[in-house]
Simulated scan of single mutants.
Amino acid sequence: MREKLVEYLIQLVDIPSVTGNEKEIADFTHNFLKNFFTEENIIRHNNSLIAYDEFDPDKKTISFIGHLDTVPGINEFTGQIIEDRLYGLGSSDMKGGLAVMMSLIDYFSSKEKRFNCIYVFYEKEEGPYVDNGLEPLLKNYDIIQKSDFSFVLEPTNNVVQIGCLGTLHASIIFKGKRAHSARPWQGENAIHKSANFLKRLSDKEWKRYNFGGLEYVEVMNATMVSFSGGRNIIPDEFEINVNYRFAPGKSIEEAKKDVIELVNNEAEVVFTDLCPSGNVNLDNPILHEFTKKYGINIEAKQAWTDVARLSQYGIDGVNFGPGDPAQAHQKNEYIPLKNLYENFEILKDFLSI
């Protein structure tokens, strides 16, 4: 099965699928699924796909979830294996995970499993939160909600990453009055007006939250600025982009309130890219069995992932994928073949009767 696993991955990385350009890889995946599922058990929504088993009510249900798209990038060694690493844009993030999903479908096409399985291949994960292709699948079809547990095969080096931070961006807009920089008394400097806020933001301590021994660090940072004017103009507007990564269990409304309180009515606040935090589902029995059986390391997810979106629909899930997170979005991205084989073998064994 290793040869097929590698073959699937080579085919996947050979198909360009930068966010917004997923039709070719969705067509490829759709044609693949037709070999193993009836049309009645395949759902296609734009360039996203769901395929699912005939459900046995005596079995629990597991879903495997992966995005088809990549960020833009350069890879000079696409499809090549060099020093036991397979190269290609998206090989780690996350076409290696997709290849594992395809290999599980292939392997179990003639074998019994102890779980019902749902396989989700979706578009536009690497773009804005509101355009993400998983949301319409969850909103328009109830099939994924049948999952008792979900594996999202994002790159984790085969470590289980549980929960995730929520994230939001806020434009903090300071208003002033335009003037010539030689006569600043005729204006109000919008940049200078931000000084107290920036000092409070700089002094704000990181908060650490512990869930069952897993630590999540809540952080708020200024990440970008823009202004109106020029080198010899007192600016009448100064905008700071603040990115807030907030702890599991905190709602978006609570996170927005934290930002508003820090601004202290000194500026206008406009929120964008509001992404919920993910539940820390340590008590899920399938997860407990899985981590205990294979002695897999468990980590807190100190970032955002679509397990948070699953949480909004009452679905427990974790990130567990073969890709190397350090390779995500890198030039000449690769995946260690050892990771690929190990991830497949673990999931195959877990599903086997």
Rank of each mutant, 00 (worst) to 15 (best):
F37Y: 14
D27M: 03
S109A: 15
G97R: 14
P57D: 07
L214Q: 01
A247R: 11
P155L: 04
V18M: 06
V18Y: 07
F108N: 02
G96M: 01
D142Y: 07
E3T: 12
P16G: 08
P136W: 15
L337K: 04
F344Q: 03
F108P: 03
K301F: 11
S109K: 12
F174A: 09
D53W: 00
P325E: 05
I62M: 02
V120P: 06
P276S: 07
E135S: 08
I234S: 04
E268G: 02
I191M: 15
N41W: 00
V280K: 00
I234C: 06
G230W: 09
I346T: 07
G295N: 13
C164V: 05
G212T: 07
I240L: 10
S226D: 12
K331F: 10
I162T: 13
C117M: 10
Y244C: 15
W206G: 11
E3L: 09
F174Q: 09
Y141R: 01
F197H: 00
V160R: 06
N21R: 04
A179C: 05
P235M: 09
T272I: 05
E39R: 00
S194V: 12
I162H: 07
N21F: 09
T223Y: 06
K175F: 12
D93Y: 12
S91D: 10
G278K: 13
A326Y: 14
K331D: 14
Y87H: 14
F320S: 13
A326I: 13
D283L: 01
Y209R: 03
D14P: 01
L340K: 12
C117W: 03
V159F: 03
D324G: 01
P16V: 05
G20C: 02
V18A: 05
F344V: 12
F350G: 10
Y294E: 08
G278S: 09
R245L: 11
S311Y: 05
G133K: 11
L337E: 07
D324T: 00
N221K: 13
K338H: 11
I65F: 07
N339I: 02
K207E: 09
A51V: 00
N35S: 02
I144P: 00
E135I: 15
N189G: 06
Q145H: 05
K348A: 14
N319E: 10
A303P: 04
E40K: 01
Y141Q: 00
K293I: 03
L89F: 06
L89Q: 09
I173T: 12
E24R: 08
S181P: 10
N140V: 04
Y119K: 08
N35V: 03
L89Y: 02
F32H: 01
T19G: 02
G229E: 01
Y294Q: 02
G90C: 09
H67L: 04
H67C: 11
T61S: 08
I62E: 03
D53E: 10
G229C: 00
K199T: 00
R2Y: 08
H67T: 06
F115E: 11
A303N: 04
H329R: 13
G187N: 12
K256P: 05
N332G: 15
E289I: 04
G88S: 14
K95N: 05
T156I: 05
A300V: 04
V100T: 13
S109Q: 10
V120Y: 06
L274P: 01
H67V: 06
L98R: 13
D131E: 15
D84R: 04
N284H: 08
K146R: 14
F121V: 00
S251T: 15
S251K: 08
G127Y: 06
P155H: 08
F121W: 01
K301H: 07
A326W: 12
H169Y: 05
